[in-house]
């Protein structure tokens, strides 16, 4: 199966383009749009689709490969890694990065740990309310 890229890059996002690519690919893998083992666009093809430089896509793929999320076979192309633990791990990583952000903002606001935990519990309660 060959996946057509439907990624998009934001110019006002503030984050580097390669990080945006990494995040969007991870999302597609995590929700199952890009299933394990499937072929993903080549570096050059994705660069053309997104109208951005080859080197930027190369960097994103390099880091995804380094994290074991994709594998690149020389001359064959790049594929989503066939690691079943992956999607769980992706969400775990994403949660960790959000928690880091939360901790940073809390420090900026001068919140105590107790206040932070309280706010987190309130947010979790709110989320449960919405699900019901």
């Amino acid at each position: 199966m060959n996946i057509h890229s439907d990624l998009s890059i934001s110019r006002t996002d503030g984050r580097p383009m390669y990080l945006q690519i990494i995040e969007q690919i991870k999302q597609r893998i995590a929700i199952g749009d890009w299933p394990a083992g499937s072929e993903i666009p080549s570096i050059r093809q994705l660069a053309i689709d997104l109208r951005i430089s080859v080197i930027t896509v190369k960097r994103a793929y390099f880091e995804l490969e380094h994290e074991g999320i994709i594998v690149t076979q020389h001359g064959k192309g790049s594929f989503v890694a066939t690691n079943t633990q992956l999607s769980r791990q992706l969400w775990e990583d994403e949660l960790d990065s959000y928690l880091e952000q939360v901790a940073r903002l809390a420090a900026l606001l001068g919140l105590s740990n107790e206040q932070l935990i309280h706010r987190l519990q309130a947010a979790a309660a709110q989320q449960q309310q919405e699900l019901l």
Binding site: R44, A47, I48, R51, I52, S53
Partner: peptide
Amino acid sequence: LIEVLADEDRTILFSSHNTLDVEQISDQ
């Protein structure tokens, strides 16, 4: 311009004042 690079044998040099264009499509 980007599409030219689908062929790996081809190379582009472009001068510009518009750094936004350079930022978008340049490798170097």
